[in-house]
Design a protein around this nucleic acid. Sequence first.
DNA 1: ACTCTGACTCAAGACGCA
DNA 2: TTGAGTCAGAGT
DNA 3: TGCGTCC
Length: 372
Amino acid sequence: MGIARLADVIKEEAAEAVSSFPLRQYRDRVIALDASIAIYQFRTATPKLFNRNGENISHLQGLFYRTLHLLENGIKPVFVFDGQPPDLKQPLLARRAEAAGARRDAAESRRAENLPRPLKQDCETLLSYLGVPYVQAPAEAEATCAALVKSGKVWCTATEDMDALPFGSLRLIRHLNSKNNCEVEEFSLPDILQKLGMTQEQFVDLCILLGCDYCGKIWQLGPKKALKLLQQHGTIEQVLQNIDPQKHPLPANWDLEGARRLFLQPEVADPGRITLEWRDPDPEGLVRFLAHEKHMNEARVCRRLQRWQEAQPKPEEAQPKHQAPREGRKQRKLGEFFPASKHARPPEVRGVRARPPGTRGARGMAQGIILC
DNA sequence: ACTCTGACTCAAGACGCA
DNA sequence: TTGAGTCAGAGT
DNA sequence: TGCGTCC
C-alpha cells in the first residue's frame, strides 16, 4: 500500500525535488527493485498464463522480459526479495487475507510478502541465468533497498509505492517499466526534506500521519493538515497537543513509536556483506530453464534473446570497465546455439535441474547475501 | 473555499501482428 | 485483487 | 497504434 497520497504531497509542496529523465539517463546505474512487488504485478497482470503442466508462469515471463529490457538499456538491476513482514504489519495482512476470503486459491492470493517458495525459487533461478544479482531482505524489501542506496552500492530504488523514502532511500524512481517513450520520475529525498523544511524524523512522522502500513491514521487529518501541523509543531506528539482530540480521535492500538522504529531503524541486510556482480545472460541456460523445464514457448524465448544480443554493443564499442570478461567463462554465440529453424528440436535436457551458474547454495541465501 | 471521506471505476506486463 | 484516479457530499 | 495473445 505504501504511504497514502505521499507522491501528491511531494509534487505539490516540493515540486523541485521531482525530476523526469529518459531511461537512457540511467545507463550504467545500479538500481534496486522490489522483486516481490514486481512478481505480484506479473501474476495479476497476466493471471491466466499457464504452461502445459498447469503451472502459472506469468511471473517468469514477466521477469524475463522486464529484466532483459533493463539490461538492454544498460541498467544494472538488483532484485530484493521481501523477508518476514514486521509484526506491526500483521493487522494489515490479516485484513487483506480476510478481504480475499476463502474463494480465492491460496497460492494465487498470497500477496508479495508471502511468495510461495517454489515461485520464488523459480525467480531466483531465472535471475541467476540472466546474470542479475538478487538479495534476500530479512524484513521489508524497500528497507533493504534504501540501505543499499545509503551505502552507495546502489544508485536508487525503483518502486511504484513510496515506502522507500521514509526508509531513507536517497533517490526513488517510478515508472521504470514504462514504455521507452515515457520518462522515469525521480524523487530526491534530500531535496524533499529541504523543500519541506523537515528532518528525516519529521518526514517519517509525516508519512505516519498520511497513513502507512504499520498503524492506522488519525480521523479527519488528511495530507494538507498533516503537513501544515507538522511543519508548525515539529513532532506528532506536539501536533496531538494542538488538535481537538474529540474531532481527531486516534485509531485503536495506535503504536506510533513502533511505526517510527520500523522506518528509522528497520531490519535490513548488511550492505557491507553484499557483493553485487553482473554477468551476461546465459542463453543456453535460459532456454533450458524457461522453454524445456517451464514450457514457455521456445521460439519466443529465443527471439527475445536474439533481440537482446542484437542490441548489445559491438566489441569495439563496448566499454571495457563494464564488459570485463570473467575468467573461465566463454559465452557461446546465439547463432551457434539457437536452432536454425523455429521448429528444430531443442537440445536434450539432461538431469533433473541444472544448478544456475554462479549460485552458491542455500547458505548464502539464508544470510541475505547472494553472489551471482 | 478548502479539506476529508467514501463510493465508484478502471487498468494492471510485454510482445507482435494487422 | 489492488491501487490510483475521480467524483459527490459532508465537515470545518 | 490498437488489440489479441502469450501457455
